[in-house]
Design a protein around this nucleic acid. Structure first.
Length: 1108
RNA sequence: GCGGGCGUGGCGAAAUUGGCAGACGCACUAGACUUAGGAUCUAGCGCCUCACGGCAUGUGGGUUCGAGUCCCUCCGCCCGCACCA
């Protein structure tokens, strides 16, 4: 008999299906003694696209299958399920084009996938198959949605809790009702108001927010579904749009999602991507007060108390204690000039109360009349050369609503009368207006977030995002036109353009100034689109010397760049900013001399002490938009009673996806579900506050693709449970996924959402684990290898690759399936396309050699290799071995069919090992077994006769070869090094072939070892060896060290680190004895060139190195 | 720009703790068996050299008796994030 993989593979696939070989058992009760330990191996389930699988897809499935089969042999109760992520856009797009129901397309695609998966001989437990589009499945997706809808995140306990614990807090007034209804008690709120308040807390919530709107797909998308400003699926442009949307409060879990990464064995790159995506930054949120603009923007409506407050409490709050001290001190030490003036104005001698050394903002004014908002300053010499200082002071005092007159010391002392007259005139001229009547009053602050409070003294301007709400309020009249123009301009530029124009710097001055909280300096406030509205507070303090973006902006607009950090090494500030968190603070008042890291701490402490701001943690992570304006997804189980969103009763789940006439939005732009007849819900009569008999409109958006995949790993544990999403017993036994294999492209999507849902379900006491998967492996991408042909322009002649330089040619892709080893099959090429029917060729060495290049595998590049074709030609075992043999699992690599003959040969060699041996055609076995000749490679003849093993005891060499293999393959599988085990199989089979091994004791074990990789041929051989049961549970062989034991070892003898010869020395000898033996060798002595060796290093069992 | 990974023959790659670099396979070369070979078998196959021998793991340096492996410098490639304050 010959090895006929087609027959044999089919036979065993049918056997496995019939005998349910791979069914995992749910022990009942789970704690039952003697039960096998569990092991859960999961593949990321596929979205069944119309294109079917290509050779890249099975890579992960084969790897996980090998591991699952290995674990079964090791005695584990292995859960290795598969299913389909069946909701999604492509089926719906297809439905829109053709009118065919997406369920039909999906069903067809699934059967094709199933067939392809079956052909690979994967050991899935199909009894547990799940499909996210199956109502029996999405019933529970909806159920989980409702759990999240009815839960909130309690920051105090750090846990998801049912909503009633929140309501308790409101009722007992432990928690104040947020925002617009701030002055009300919970008990005063009506139903709508309560619903609105709770909506701000629910984990699944409805809110008005800017979302990624994709007009071409007619739906919103989550952040991870947008790449480079276009939709991940289809590549359509995406814009920001304000819409009412369902979202998931994943941000509440940001810190746990970040911290729990520590405890799981996932690749560093995935963890890093998640950390990046979560984007935690620790810093401080800090207020900069604004200088009210001279022209009133807004008439204040201040109460009397505010007026009074403004009248007397003129000092900057945070500086008050210090200023109070200084002013007291100053009063004791008045200058002569000040004494003279004080005597003239004190006790209301001028008809107004004048105060001396009165703090205003952060300064102390020499004299002030609060009623008339007049400051009188007597300048010392210092002011002559500190003009800037005065200007700043004037601006600030003006900002506080004071007018100011200045006199010199000389004037005060020698022309006292004139000075007093001037003061009298000013006082009678009428008061300056109060700031509260002109500007923005108390709330006139810009909140900023910074991680670098140590650079606070380097602030030279501030920038607001164009969307910042203060922009309009603070802009001065003179700048208004320019600012409005700018905002309009940035609005019209989509995010994509903004991103594409990274290098373009734009912005505009608002005309407004803020006050530096420490120096009191005035700081111009700008608007710039390099500041993002969505992050932090949408405003930044700009430190051009130490932030590259601020630097670019400041350079462009010629703003100052004061340096406040001294780098450790030379730094050229004329070309770039110094952003590193290294160096010492300079020009920074109380921070001077401190190292950056200490300065950050100190600055935050100081900011908090002075009440200027608070420690703050910001995340880049946004809440995940959950609603989709699409048809082919899970309906969101919410209805609207008088505009209040309410949960559909659990008893009424699932809310079945309705039939619609078209899969398009309605004429009014409503999602497709709005087309459904009577898309209404009639609440259960016994639920409170429902009018009997009335029905209410249901939510028309559907869930996103990631909803169903965020918990599917749990459903596999108990796939047919109709009462629960998963039973307590099942999840208690299976716990979590032990090994999860899938693509790294889900790093910030699925893999984050599934962790999020797991944590929420854990908090609610529904599952016992906080992470879905202990270990994650990302298989590398298999790239395509494209082939090219070169057509001479304006002819139907094609020239071979190495001759094309002589011609003017057009290069085009050619189907790689009609090319072998880069040699084009000319006949197939002529048939491939009509226009090639008369193609002529210019050949080299009688062949047409194609060009080749590594590209992504895609239909348009004609480089897709279909696993079915490979299986047809070489068999599933061969494809499995070859995919593993290509290289390390996690590495991306190009597919190259050329090498597959290696593994194909191996399988045949393996097969022959179990059959009567001969060499070539000469030593044919006696009998009828003639070599079968065939024109067709697919039925390649194999030169063996009948199955044959002997029951003789195996030789030492045979045992050694086998046990070497046991050890290596066991190690290899444990560390997922599948490529090396294939090598090791080859080595062992080669060795046993050389030894002409036919011993049952060896071949029995070999079949088991090979079975995870090439299960069909292993089953067949196992069966031929006389076993009636499948090899699946045969038990993994035990490695025995004793069979590897050697008496002697061929020591490599190296002279000065270079190996010169090998010397067979007994392993029983110790270091000294080995040295003696080596040194006495004539062969070794040759290399000494008469000199005596300086040093001899002996590592027993490994090497001898002699230094000459 | 930031973060992660990587760099070894013509090609895919191996070297698990610092110990004979290139296992295993593809391709290639020669031979055997053959009516035939895209089957099978035997041998060869990093580079330079007739050879002795020398040089080789992206570059340059260091540690070490000994470095693909550890440390530093630079160069290149891949992936992710990208105005995140």
């Amino acid at each position: 008999m010959e090895y006929n993989f087609k027959e044999i593979e089919k036979k065993w696939q049918q056997y496995w299906a019939k005998n349910k070989t791979f069914v995992a058992v749910n022990p009942s009760p789970p704690e039952k003694a003697g039960v096998r330990p569990k092991f859960y191996v999961l593949d990321m389930f596929p979205y069944p696209s119309g294109a079917g699988l290509h050779v890249g897809h099975p890579l992960g499935y084969i790897a996980s299958d090998i591991y699952a089969r290995y674990k079964r042999l090791k005695g584990f109760n292995v859960l290795h399920p598969m299913g389909f992520d069946a909701f999604g856009l492509p089926a719906e797009q297809y439905a829109i084009q053709t009118g065919q129901h997406p369920a039909i397309t999906t069903e067809q695609n699934i059967s094709r996938y199933r067939e392809q998966l079956d052909n690979l001989g994967l050991s899935f437990d199909w009894d547990r198959e799940v499909r996210t589009s199956d109502p029996a499945y999405y019933k529970w997706t909806q159920w989980i949605f409702l759990k999240l809808f009815n839960s909130w995140y309690n920051e105090e306990t750090g846990k998801t809790e049912p909503l009633n614990t929140l309501e308790e807090k409101f009722k007992s007034q432990k928690l104040k009702v947020k925002s617009e209804t701030a002055n009300k008690n919970w008990s005063d709120l009506n139903e709508k108001e309560r619903s609105d308040v709770l909506m701000d807390y629910r984990l699944a919530y409805l809110s008005e927010a800017y979302v990624n709107w994709c007009p071409a797909l007619g739906t919103v998308l989550a952040n991870d579904e947008v790449k480079d400003g276009v939709s991940e699926r289809g590549g359509y442009p995406v814009e920001k749009k304000k819409m009412k949307q369902w979202s998931m409060r994943i941000t509440a879990f940001a810190d746990r999602l970040l911290n729990d990464l520590e405890g799981i064995d996932w690749s560093e790159s995935i963890k890093e991507q998640q950390r990046n995506w979560i984007g935690k930054s620790v810093g401080v949120e800090l207020k900069f007060r604004l200088i009210p603009s001279p022209s009133p923007m807004k008439k204040g409506t201040n109460s009397v108390s505010a007026h009074e407050k403004y009248k007397y409490e003129t000092a900057e709050k945070s500086f008050w204690p210090l200023l109070k001290l200084y002013s007291k001190e100053n009063r004791k030490n008045l200058t002569d000039a000040e004494k003279i003036i004080w005597e003239a104005v004190r006790d209301s001698k001028l008809g107004y109360k004048i105060r001396r050394q009165h703090p205003i903002n952060i300064f102390i004014a020499d004299f002030v009349c609060l009623d008339k908002r007049l400051v009188i300053e007597i300048d010392g010499d210092i002011h002559d050369h500190q003009k800037e200082y005065d200007e700043e002071r004037t601006l600030l005092l003006n900002g506080e609503g004071f007018s100011i007159i200045r006199f010199t010391n000389n004037e005060a002392i020698n022309h006292t009368e004139e000075v007093i007259q001037k003061i009298r005139n000013e006082l009678s001229a009428g008061a300056s207006p109060f700031p509260s009547e002109t500007g923005l009053g108390d709330e006139a602050c810009i909140d900023i977030f910074t991680t670098r409070p140590d650079t606070i003294f380097g602030v030279s301007y501030m920038t607001l995002a164009p969307e910042h709400e203060l922009v309009d309020k603070i802009t001065t009249d003179s700048q208004r036109a320019a600012v409005q123009n700018y905002i309009l301009e940035t609005k019209n530029r989509s995010d994509r353009e903004r991103m594409a124009e990274v290098k373009r710097i734009s912005g505009v001055f608002t005309g407004a100034y803020a006050i530096h909280p420490f120096t009191g300096k005035q700081i111009p406030v700008w608007v710039g689109d390099y500041v993002l509205a969505g992050y932090g507070t949408g405003a930044v303090m700009a430190v051009p010397a130490h932030d590259s973006r601020d630097y670019a902006f400041a350079t462009h607009f010629n703003l100052p760049k004061p340096q406040v950090i001294q780098p450790k090494t030379e730094w050229d500030f004329s070309t770039s900013s110094y952003d590193e968190k290294e160096g010492t603070c300079i020009n920074s008042d109380f921070l001077n001399g401190l190292h950056v890291k200490d300065a950050i701490k100190k600055a935050i402490d100081e900011i908090e002490k002075r009440g200027l701001g608070t420690r703050q943690i910001n995340y880049r992570l946004r809440d995940a938009v959950f609603g989709r304006q699409r048809y082919w997804g899970e309906p969101i189980p919410i209805y609207y009673e008088n505009g209040i969103p309410k949960a559909v009763d659990e008893k009424d789940l699932p809310v079945i996806l309705p039939e619609v006439d078209k899969y398009l939005p309605t004429e009014d732009g409503e999602p497709p579900l709005a087309r459904a007849n009577n898309w209404k819900y009639r609440p259960h009569p016994q639920t409170p506050s429902k009018e009997e008999g009335s029905s209410f409109p249901l939510e028309t958006t559907t869930m996103p693709g990631w909803a169903g995949s965020s918990w599917y790993y749990l459903r596999y544990m108990d796939a047919h449970n109709e009462k629960e999403f998963v039973s307590k017993d099942a999840v208690q036994y299976w716990q979590d996924v032990d090994l999860y294999i899938g693509g790294s492209e889900h790093a910030t999507g699925h893999l984050l959402y599934v962790r999020f849902w797991t944590k929420a379900l854990y908090d609610l006491g529904l599952i016992p684990v906080i992470e879905p998967a202990k270990k994650l492996i990302n298989q590398g991408m298999i790239q395509g290898r494209s082939n090219f042909v070169y057509r001479i322009k304006d002819t139907n002649k094609f020239v071979s690759k190495n001759l094309k330089a002589n011609y003017d040619t057009n290069t085009s892709n050619v189907d790689v399936n009609i090319v072998e080893d880069d040699v084009l099959d000319l006949d197939k090429f002529r048939q491939w396309r009509e226009e090639n029917a008369n193609a002529e060729f210019i050949l080299e060495d009688g062949k047409y050699i194609c060009g080749a290049e590594v590209e992504k595998m895609s239909k348009s590049k004609w480089n897709v290799v279909n696993p079915d074709d490979m299986i047809e030609k070489y068999g599933a075992d061969c494809l499995r071995l070859y995919e593993m043999f290509l290289g390390p699992l996690e590495l991306s690599k190009p597919w190259n069919t050329n090498g597959i003959s290696g593994t194909s040969n191996f399988i045949r060699k393996l097969w022959r090992l179990y059959h009567q041996k001969h060499v070539g055609n000469k030593q044919l076995a006696v009998g009828n077994e003639q070599p079968i000749r065939s024109e067709d490679i697919n039925q390649a003849p194999l030169h063996f006769s009948k199955f044959h093993v002997s029951d003789e005891a195996p030789s030492k060499k045979e045992l050694k070869s086998l046990h070497k293999l046991i050890k290596k393959v066991t190690d290899d599988i444990e560390r997922f090094s599948f490529n090396t085990s294939v090598s090791n199989f080859m080595i062992c089979v080669n060795e046993l072939t050389d030894l002409k091994c036919d011993k049952r004791a060896i071949l029995d074990t070999l079949a088991i070892l090979v079975s995870p990789y090439a299960p069909h041929v292993a089953e067949e051989l196992w069966n031929l060896l006389g076993h009636s049961e499948s090899v699946t549970y045969a038990g993994w062989p035990e490695f025995k060290e004793e069979f590897l034991a050697e008496d002697s070892f061929a020591y490599p003898i190296s002279i000065n680190g270079k190996t010169k010869l090998n010397l067979e020395i007994s392993l029983a000898l110790n270091k000294d004895e080995i040295e003696k033996e080596v040194m006495s060798s004539e062969e070794v002595k040759k290399f000494f060139h008469g000199q005596l060796p300086k040093k001899v290093i002996v590592v027993p069992g490994r090497i001898v190195n002699i230094v000459v």
